[in-house]
Design a protein around this nucleic acid. Structure first.
Lengths: 189, 189
DNA sequence: CTTAAAATTGACTGATCAGTCAATCATTTT
DNA sequence: AAAATGATTGACTGATCAGTCAATTTTAAG
């Protein structure tokens, strides 16, 4: 029953290699070697490569779920709310590059079953927060909350994920976030 | 000298498979089979797998360059300019999903040399257009043109690329683009 | 202590992988 | 017509791939 150790050693190694090289770029042999574990044990503990891939995705998703809480409190002034929302989201993306890579692999590689890694299951909470700020007059009530969320999310994800030529260091990023917050305030009023 | 036909048959097949499955997800054998060409000919015409991969990237980049022109004319009213810019860009992304997939493969898979497929080399023209609209008073002169471009680009790329739960059909997209244009007009003033 | 169950090992399979090579075929040059 | 050049073929290599299996060791239960 050294099972926990061995199984988790395999999972850790698989996670690292799958995140780095994707499904078809990773071989069971390399996973076994990295985990310092007999090759056959991978199949004993996980069945086959695809089941191991699924297990890795679930493991990453579980970790991500525990670290979420990107949404600030709705009793903040709207400007602060926006500012924190963007900062939190960008930090979340930055801190969870594993998930990001995994999501991107999942998008590109032939989809067996896309259950597993996803982002922003908290959409409903976002919607509620937006509606709240519409109700107290910070956001034009004519604007569709779905559009507002989509807009914010696309800004945030690009800022955090895309390697941007125009925004190089952290100072630039901070300035850019401020620029966006001020712009969004005007846009939504 | 049936070279043109054979070589291009290989390139076409390779392009399809590389775009679908990436570098390590594609085998030379499958390319040969799809191209209906002798296996050894791939090496005779392209050297090895990586050189074929590079050739495919160049081929895609070349095609994309010919189809660019996403930038509207700067003598349009700013609102029309923004509107057309977003529509053109989204259409460009939609029409060139091959390039998009290739860029994403390139981002994920171990980078040998990232020459080849890239987007928005026209950044300078974008900058000039923004500065022009700042000069004639449509955009606040205090705002950094780089930030403005980054913002527009991130909105556009997300709208075109990310599978969005909240925006399903073309009507939604059109409405969303209008929403963004109006918002950006207010934000930049 | 005995026995059953689980963990671990190493040897093995057949398929596929990228790449080579000498021989043949087709075309062009001289 | 002869020679040279390039295109094409098929047979081959050694490495790696995912996966199997029987035998052995370790651990847990009665």
């Amino acid at each position: 029953m050294n099972d926990v150790t061995t199984k988790s050693k395999i999972l850790t190694a698989a996670r690292q290699l799958f995140v780095e090289n994707g499904f078809s770029g990773t071989s069971m042999g390399k996973i076994a070697k990295l985990a310092e574990v007999n090759y056959s044990l991978l199949f004993h503990h996980f069945g086959n490569k695809e089941q191991l891939w699924v297990a890795v995705k679930q493991s990453i998703a579980r970790d991500a779920a525990n670290k979420s809480k990107t949404l600030p409190l709705s009793n903040l002034p709207f400007k602060e709310f926006l500012s924190q929302l963007m900062a939190n989201s960008i930090k979340f993306y930055r801190d969870n590059s594993e998930i990001i890579r995994m999501i991107n692999w999942q998008r590109l590689e032939p989809a067996e079953q896309s259950i597993g890694v996803t982002l922003s299951t908290e959409s409903n909470e976002w919607l509620d927060a937006i509606k709240h700020y519409q109700h107290i007059g910070n956001i034009d009530k004519e604007l569709k909350p779905e559009f507002i969320i989509t807009l914010i999310l696309s800004i945030v994800s690009s800022a955090a994920l895309d390697p941007n030529v125009l925004i190089k260091d952290k100072k630039d990023l901070k300035a850019y976030v401020d620029f966006c917050v001020i712009g969004l305030l005007k846009a939504f009023r």
